[in-house]
Design a protein around this nucleic acid. Sequence first.
DNA 1: TGTTCATGTGAACCATTGTTCAGTTTATAA
DNA 2: TTATAAACTGAACAATGGTTCACATGAACA
Lengths: 196, 196
Amino acid sequence: MVHMNKRSGIESRKRILDAAMKVFSGHGYAKANMRMIAKAADISIGGLYLYFRNKEDLCFTLIKNRLDDLAGRTREALGDIDDPAEAIGKFISIHIKYVKKHRELILVQGREHGFAFGIEIKKKFFRSQRKLLEDIIRKGIKAGVFRKCDVEESAKIIFGAIRGFVLSIVVEPDSLFLPEECSNLILNGLVRRNNK
Amino acid sequence: MVHMNKRSGIESRKRILDAAMKVFSGHGYAKANMRMIAKAADISIGGLYLYFRNKEDLCFTLIKNRLDDLAGRTREALGDIDDPAEAIGKFISIHIKYVKKHRELILVQGREHGFAFGIEIKKKFFRSQRKLLEDIIRKGIKAGVFRKCDVEESAKIIFGAIRGFVLSIVVEPDSLFLPEECSNLILNGLVRRNNK
DNA sequence: TGTTCATGTGAACCATTGTTCAGTTTATAA
DNA sequence: TTATAAACTGAACAATGGTTCACATGAACA
């Protein structure tokens, strides 16, 4: 056995995160174990604990990174859009595209294992995303584009629907869920318009 | 210790299912263990295995029962509704109400533990529910009430949205998600109608 | 009374797994 | 070369938990 130890700490940490991502994704939190992650990261079991307090901390870090990333991308993308309808469409498409790219980790977050870990961080994320939606809706109503409605409740419902799209894509990766179709439904509904 | 054994088998099976429901609901699949279920069902650990092959089989039976029940209720409720818009509303409200009643078990199904158990049964359930939606949409288009659209894709999206409502309610039981508001969005969309 | 069998028991088995810690290795600098 | 500390190792520990099995119980019946 070749000894490959003595690498830079920062690099090892990254390797562990990458490996953990793969292992958690492939097996889920409960069935993934530290030995698998250690092997995948080409480090010893004990080595893992140099960089993460425990299994939970490791998974938590993974989730937090992803959520922060998505939140940042969303804010950024919405920055230069004025049309509320277009903003809603963008909001939806960002989320759908993000899922298709990071399907694996979302599988892990699901409901996996006992309860509440990372629940706080997730709730915070959801709240901030909903706030963005609320801003768009308020703007849309003020501009006369959207119908008058309870802004908070609507944002909650729309974000709920998006969560459903995300979940469906995660569970059935082959299903289409074209962003345009999804936002078309949210924007225009199922009922036929008079002027068409 | 009083010996309470020698009860009818069928009754014991029911007691076990009730107990399992409570325990799985309260702790999730992974953290629930056979000892807890045995105690809650007032039976011995070994006794559990007289009625269910293993932990998975026990949980699977629970889920299957619930899904069959919901599928039956849906079919029944939609039977005597002709108006497509009303049918969509009913479909949504049935699901939302069902979740609020059986929140616990849905928590268990989530994504819990490794992979695929009960996945087949769930997929079958989803397929059949989507079929119901497709029928409603097709009828609505034919009647000129709904806009022309890809029926299958629309059903998938709407069912996806409903899944999101369900998930949101499960995770945040306090949130409202009024059925009327939800179907209003699905039916009419966010954008303001001309005639209003 | 004695036999049968469905029903029930729970200690014990065994595999798994998160975590620790006493010790090893190597880069760096004095 | 030697000392120091950061990086790393993996056997061992301790707890958990699904499952089994040899045995017990009691209702029904001959």
